[in-house]
Computed example of a mutant assay.
Amino acid sequence: MENVQFDRKNASHSLAEVALVIAFESPLAGERLQKLKFLPAAFKDQFPAASENKELSLSVTDGRSSTVTSFNGWTLEKKDLETDLVEWQLIVEKNRIVVKGFEYSTWPEFKNELLALFERLSEELDLRHLHTKEVVIQFVDRFHWMISPEEYRLDKFFNPESSYLPYAAKRGGPLWHSFQGWLKEEEGLRVIVNLNLSTQTPAERPHRTEILHSLRAIGHEGYDGFSELDSKLISQILDIAHIDNKSTMQGLLNEEASTSIGL
């Protein structure tokens, strides 16, 4: 694609970030919380950089209010030694886990590394029988294009006839946003799909188009959430999300854009 850049130099595709989010029904407590406090030591071989996350709470005593900060978990990072860019980020807090990959190569490779990370976390924090509210897989694609507003064309990236595109995107302007979602059942799981499309033209910077596609697994077999959390379930949700993302992108992008990112 002529004059189009991606987030990372020499990247072969527009996928800038893939994330796994696991939201707990209740915050970690007791022995799990104690183990969380020592998490950086357990993952130092894989995530050398660690920073503590704080939780801010409001306290009112005798009509006076004050804020109190307390431990809420960690942000761990693995960086490229040459570029200092983050390759993997692991956020583990009392009520959620977020794993982000920024150096996406192939789906099988990414999935295997993600599952291995989950296995280590599950063993370290005893997550298997922890009730989970939802499991989210999120894909973020970005295109950067150095143009003036007058040069903008929707069909540079998108299929103008796509059912995912609203009227606001098709009327010709370079700035538009679309936020949509729907509920469906897939392989016995209840999932909410969100597709958020947006464009920006910051002053003296490339025009940016961002596609955020996420699949939220919120329950199965008539139950809300998940009482068991293991690699088999995570693997199933990952594969459903990957297939749905690929299908959505193929219906959204034009042929040139689809080819350029290997769809």
Rank of each mutant, 00 (worst) to 15 (best):
M1K: 08
E2G: 03
Q5K: 08
R8N: 01
R8Q: 01
K9C: 02
A19C: 10
R32P: 03
L33H: 05
K35N: 14
K37I: 00
F38E: 14
P40V: 11
A42I: 02
P48K: 06
A49H: 11
S51C: 02
E55G: 04
S57T: 12
L58W: 11
L58T: 13
S59R: 04
V60L: 08
T61L: 12
G63M: 03
R64N: 13
S65Y: 09
G73N: 01
T75E: 10
E77A: 11
K78E: 09
K79P: 00
E82W: 08
E82F: 06
T83D: 00
L85A: 02
E87S: 10
E87Y: 09
Q89C: 11
L90K: 07
V92E: 08
I97Y: 03
I97F: 06
V99C: 12
G101I: 01
E103D: 15
F110N: 10
K111Q: 12
N112M: 07
E113D: 15
E113S: 12
L115F: 12
F118C: 10
E124A: 11
L125D: 09
L127N: 01
H129I: 04
L130C: 05
L130H: 03
L130K: 09
V135A: 03
V136D: 11
Q138F: 03
Q138L: 10
D141K: 02
D141A: 00
M146E: 14
I147Q: 12
S148I: 10
P149Y: 09
D155N: 14
P160C: 04
S163Y: 07
Y164R: 04
A168E: 15
A168T: 15
A168D: 15
K170N: 11
F179E: 09
W182E: 15
K184R: 09
E187L: 03
R190Q: 15
R190I: 14
V191R: 05
I192L: 13
L195T: 11
S198K: 06
T201M: 13
P202W: 12
I211K: 00
I218K: 10
H220A: 15
G225N: 09
L229S: 09
D230T: 09
S231P: 06
K232M: 07
S235Y: 09
S235N: 15
Q236S: 14
Q236E: 14
I237T: 06
D239V: 15
I243R: 07
I243Y: 01
S247M: 13
T248S: 08
E256A: 15
S258H: 00
G262H: 07
